[in-house]
Design a protein around this nucleic acid. Structure first.
Length: 800
DNA sequence: TCTCACACCTTTGAAGTGG
DNA sequence: CCACTTCAAAGGTGTGAGA
């Protein structure tokens, strides 16, 4: 995927590769400074190597030394000139250097974030920005994103991308001998352990459409760290790690979708050439790109104003969408950054997508789900403007550039086939939506002043309910394996059908007028698309009219105790139960309606792990995903009253790693990480499951590693301590038990709590059993025969 | 990393008992 | 017939040796 510096998508495919052999080229300087290569065209013999003319000693090596490299299309202009020429040292206020405390959301709203600015290291980090310190190395990156993660690497000489593993890259990066210049500028690291160390500046999060307009429920469904489009649930462009060796250069380009960029230098240095996105400049840029003369012409020379900025360790750089830029790496560098779309430069963003159309950029180099995103944005504006109509504006402001942008966007959505070809299924009536928004904008009061406490019309604020509920209850919603109907441009039909286990497609039920005030909004109504009953013509039955269903994990503390050390679950061929057991407290169901409860266990990511030095580390790419099964609670279907009466326990659920297992066990791979999910289906017959409304919940503390033997001693100890079946392994238990048995002869009667901790009965055993989290719940009314029936049903369900 | 026999334990449910 | 007890079988544990 093309990012910050990537112009590979704009490189003309028609440009012939010269494949010249050149002489090298080694500049060793005390300052670790510039290495610039110059190839004379039409020559396969003479190569000029230009170092930093002021500080580098030039050295020439003969090709006989074995240092030859094949380079294609190296620039014929002298990049060193461009790095040092005064031509680009303009100071007309277009680029500003500002203090970190001046970076506020309101300032960005006022200015629309149209000009680049830099926060120097001395000024501190912009509010909210979190990045690793300068000791952080590429090895650390490798450790945290996985050695086997395949990454796109740009060959600097061709500006085209190739793939290698993170391990290969780290080795390349740290080695002294390189025969090609490679550059990593498109490693997106969300959903990897590295992600936790990175936070974009506050204002970015407040503006970013992914945060403000993309359905959060779809975003949280993303579990994979890689950027595979088939698994992507949201535009995964928020956190990038860029690693460049000295001499890397990315030619002039515009970031996809007209995204704006934040960019923090953790190590090394960067040189940017920046060109404002005026009509004239963009037009020249398109011509330059289509002409395929990138190697001969430095685009900065073609325009009136091209600014150069030098960035050093600790600097943070902000580049607005649409700016044409090139990047050079004078020192080996490590950079973290991210991209975002926002509401105050909609026209600029659309302009860039038009350029991408003209220059025929490949789909994989575009902003993912751009079309879907703008539909969600429009819907969000409609909803909030309507809300404002009724409830008043509060602190929110609707600014002129915003309205102007939205009106242009509406026209595009009305007219453009591209924009109409990929409308998310959540947008029920696109025409009506656009009409409504037009009317709302027509009558909306436009603000001219943006005060210090003003807030955007659409903001993250409106989602904090979801965030806080998620934190509080540790619930997150898993909706689907595919967020919406994909644009044919992005994904083919076969792409959809290859995911056999895609059962659910979400329909987000949002009440028009109100924001919901309970955590039930975490739970969406999900309707199976694949299994939609043709006769029912996609009528989604709400799970509950008042949408008030809540599910809590009842043995949360125990799960958390395990989770803290990385829960492990033993798997054997015949199937082993989970401990702790999945137990839930359900409320808010309609007491008289019937429900089915199901559990499935899905991979938490696509990695396999190793337990090394008391911690789980990513060891490679995950094995193939075994066939997905659903475990139906044996008491299903049953009334809401029944489910709410007491704790709902899935203690009979077993996991196994025997793929040929014909039983009802859930199949998992050893040394992989899994996440159980609970589904509530409102239906009175198990056969009707595919056509009924779902709700799906995930409790993150129930995540576990599947193992064939325990890895962590702490986990073993916790299991022994809490699982009654493992009582025999508790310290001193054997002798204690013997003593107690002996003593019991004198006591005669001991009390044992039954499985529900109620109605004690007399037992012949010796020990006194106490109630607690670890008590195994039995089935009140479940006999072997009806369990069997259910299992047969599950089989049928799986087979259907 | 995985498998298996094992000791030690809980759970289950049929049979027994008494009112 | 019901409530309760008894008890053996079934089955859920982690261990540790061996593959």
């Amino acid at each position: 995927m093309a990012v910050t510096e990537n112009r590979s998508h704009l490189a003309s495919p028609s440009t012939p590769a010269t494949n010249q052999r050149i002489r090298i080229i080694n500049t060793k300087t005390a300052h670790d400074d510039l290495l610039v290569i110059r190839v004379l065209p039409q020559s396969n013999k003479v190569v000029t190597v230009v170092g930093d003319k002021r500080r580098c000693a030039e050295k020439f090596y003969d090709e006989d030394l074995g240092l030859n490299i094949n380079l294609h299309n190296i620039t014929t202009f002298d990049l060193s000139d461009k790095v040092h020429s005064d031509t680009f040292d303009k100071d007309d206020g277009s680029i500003s250097y500002i203090n970190s405390e001046d970076i506020t959301l309101q300032n960005m709203m006022r200015t629309g974030f149209r000009k680049p600015f830099i926060v120097r290291a001395e000024s501190g980090k912009p509010p909210g920005l979190r990045v690793p310190d300068s000791n952080f190395t590429v090895k650390d990156v490798e450790r945290l994103v996985s050695s086997t993660r395949k990454i796109d690497v740009m060959d600097v000489s061709t500006q085209l991308s190739l793939q290698m593993t993170m391990h290969q890259w780290a080795k390349y990066f740290d080695s002294d001998k390189r025969d090609t210049l490679l550059n990593v500028i498109s490693l997106e690291i969300s959903q990897t352990p590295l992600c936790k160390l990175i936070s974009p500046p506050d204002f970015v999060r407040e503006l970013d459409w992914v945060e403000t307009a993309w359905p959060p429920s779809l975003k949280v469904a993303q579990t994979f760290g890689n950027n595979s489009l088939t698994k992507m649930k949201y535009p995964k462009v928020q956190k990038y790690c860029l690693m460049s060796v000295r001499g890397s250069y990315t030619d002039f380009h515009v970031d996809f979708g007209g995204t704006s960029v934040w960019y923090h230098i953790v190590a090394g240095a960067k040189v940017f050439w920046l060109i404002p996105p005026t009509e004239e400049n963009l037009s020249k840029f398109v011509k330059w790109t289509l002409a395929g003369k990138q190697d001969d012409i430095f685009f900065g020379d073609l325009v009136d104003k091209c600014y150069r900025v030098n960035l050093y360790v600790g600097d943070t750089f902000f580049l607005p969408g649409g700016w044409i830029h090139a990047v050079y790496t004078p020192r080996k560098s490590l950079v973290f950054g991210g991209k975002f779309l926002h509401s105050y430069n909609i026209i600029g963003q659309l302009q860039v997508t038009a350029i991408e159309d003209v220059t025929k950029v490949e789909a994989r180099y575009l902003y993912p789900y751009f079309v879907q995103m703008v539909w969600f944005v429009v819907e969000k504006y409609r909803r909030h403007l309507k809300h404002i109509e009724v409830h008043g504006k509060g602190n929110t402001v609707l600014l002129e550039q915003e309205v102007e942008g939205l009106n242009v966007l509406i026209s595009r959505l009305e007219e453009s086939k591209t924009f109409q070809s990929a409308i998310p299924i959540q947008i029920r009536n696109p025409k009506l939506l656009l009409q409504e928004l037009k009317d709302l904008l027509l009558h909306a009061e436009i603000d001219t002043i943006c005060g210090d406490f003003s807030e955007p019309i659409i903001s993250r604020e409106r989602n904090t309910l979801l965030d806080s509920a998620r934190k509080l209850h540790n619930i997150r919603l898993i909706s689907t394996d595919r967020p919406f109907k994909m644009s044919p441009v992005v994904s083919s039909d076969s792409d959809v059908s290859e995911d056999e286990d895609v059962l659910l497609l979400p329909i987000i039920e949002e009440k028009e007028e109100e924001e919901k005030s309970t955590i039930t909004e975490l739970v969406e109504v999900i309707v199976s698309d694949k299994f939609t009953n043709p006769s029912s013509s996609r009528k989604e039955t709400p799970l509950n009219e008042d949408n008030n269903v809540t599910v809590e994990i009842s043995n949360k503390e125990l799960w958390q105790a395990f989770c803290k050390h990385g829960t492990e679950m033993i798997i054997i061929k015949a199937g082993r139960r989970l401990f702790p057991v999945l137990k839930f407290k359900v409320s808010g169901l309609d007491p008289n309606s019937k429900y089915v409860f199901l559990v499935d266990i899905v991979p938490a990511d696509d990695c396999w792990y190793r337990f090394c030095n008391c911690e789980w580390i990513v060891a490679g790419e995950g094995d193939h995903i075994p066939p997905k099964r659903m475990y139906v609670h044996p008491e299903s279907p049953n009334t809401g009253a029944h489910w709410m009466k007491e704790i709902l326990s899935f203690h009979k659920l077993k996991i196994a790693h025997n793929v040929s297992d014909a039983g009802s066990n859930m199949i998992v791979n050893s040394m992989h990480r899994y996440q159980p999910r609970v589904h509530i289906v409102q239906c009175d017959d198990i056969y009707k499951i595919p056509w009924c409304a779902f709700r799906t919940m995930v409790f993150t503390e129930t995540e576990f590693f599947a193992v064939t033997a325990y890895q962590s001693e702490k986990i073993t100890q916790l299991k022994i301590e809490h699982n009654p079946f493992a009582k025999g392994f508790r310290a001193g238990t054997a002798t204690q038990a013997a003593e107690e048995r002996y003593n019991s002869k004198n006591i005669n009667v001991t009390i044992v709590l039954d499985s529900y901790g109620t109605a004690p009965f007399l037992a012949a055993g010796g020990a006194i059993h106490t109630s607690g989290d670890h008590i195994q719940h039995t089935q009140h009314n479940t006999t072997k025969s009806n369990l069997l029936t259910h299992m047969q049903m599950v089989e049928q369900f799986q087979g259907s």
